[in-house]
Amino acid sequence: MSKLVLKPNLSRADDFYAALLAEHETLTRDESDAYNARLLLVLANHVGDPDILAQALAAARK
């Protein structure tokens, strides 16, 4: 089974985070929720592998 990467993997972490915030800057709360949902689905499709996705669902739990 492939393993979900949980070690740092973003090559420019601060840039990504800033870009994410920037996307939300002009959005209302509802628009932001919708944006997050779309982003999540785009990323999930890129990952594809159901084992990795299952591990990601678990890792996101508190």
Partner: peptide, 23 residues
């Protein structure tokens, strides 16, 4: 509410991106 948000996200994406259509 969240299942509606996710559902609408699928529908919005389906218009532009083929990947969302099977969902």
């Amino acid at each position: 509410e969240m299942s509606r948000i996710l559902r609408n996200a699928v529908l919005d994406l389906a218009e532009k991106h083929e990947f969302a259509r099977p969902l």
